[in-house]
Simulated assay, not measured.
Amino acid sequence: MSDNSALAGQKSDQKPDFPAGAPPPGLLALFLAFARMSLAGFGGVLVFARRAIVEQHRWMTADEFNETFALCHFLPGPNIVNLSMVFGSRLRGIAGGVAAFTGLLLPPTLIMMVLAIAYARFGELEVLRRILAGISCAAVGLLIAVVFRMMTPLLRRTDPLALILMLGVFLAIGVLRLPLQAVLLVAIPVSVGVTYFLRRKVTA
Results as ranks from 00 to 15, higher is better:
residue 156 R to I: 12
residue 26 G to V: 00
residue 35 A to L: 03
residue 139 A to S: 08
residue 32 L to P: 15
residue 47 V to S: 14
residue 134 G to E: 07
residue 136 S to P: 09
residue 157 R to D: 15
residue 55 E to C: 07
residue 94 I to S: 09
residue 166 M to L: 08
residue 92 R to H: 12
residue 177 R to S: 04
residue 153 P to R: 08
residue 173 I to C: 13
residue 102 T to R: 14
residue 169 V to W: 02
residue 20 A to R: 11
residue 2 S to T: 14
residue 54 V to L: 03
residue 12 S to Q: 10
residue 46 L to C: 07
residue 146 V to I: 15
residue 138 A to L: 10
residue 76 P to Q: 04
residue 163 L to H: 09
residue 34 F to C: 00
residue 145 A to D: 02
residue 146 V to E: 08
residue 145 A to Y: 06
residue 179 P to M: 01
residue 119 Y to P: 15
residue 44 G to P: 13
residue 118 A to K: 12
residue 148 F to R: 15
residue 75 L to M: 04
residue 82 N to P: 10
residue 160 P to L: 01
residue 140 V to L: 14
residue 192 V to R: 02
residue 77 G to K: 01
residue 195 T to Q: 12
residue 145 A to I: 05
residue 135 I to V: 15
residue 149 R to F: 03
residue 39 L to E: 07
residue 30 L to I: 02
residue 153 P to L: 03
residue 164 I to G: 10
residue 162 A to Y: 09
residue 161 L to F: 12
residue 147 V to T: 12
residue 97 G to F: 07
residue 139 A to W: 07
residue 183 V to D: 05
residue 139 A to F: 10
residue 80 I to C: 01
residue 144 I to N: 06
residue 77 G to L: 04
residue 151 M to Q: 12
residue 89 S to M: 05
residue 28 L to E: 14
residue 201 K to R: 14
residue 104 L to V: 10
residue 158 T to C: 14
residue 118 A to C: 11
residue 202 V to M: 06
residue 199 R to Q: 10
residue 176 L to A: 12
residue 187 A to E: 07
residue 133 A to I: 02
residue 51 R to I: 01
residue 17 D to F: 14
residue 178 L to W: 12
residue 23 P to C: 08
residue 191 S to E: 11
residue 96 G to K: 01
residue 67 E to P: 13
residue 116 A to V: 07
residue 189 P to A: 06
residue 117 I to G: 12
residue 164 I to F: 13
residue 202 V to I: 05
residue 93 G to W: 10
residue 184 L to H: 09
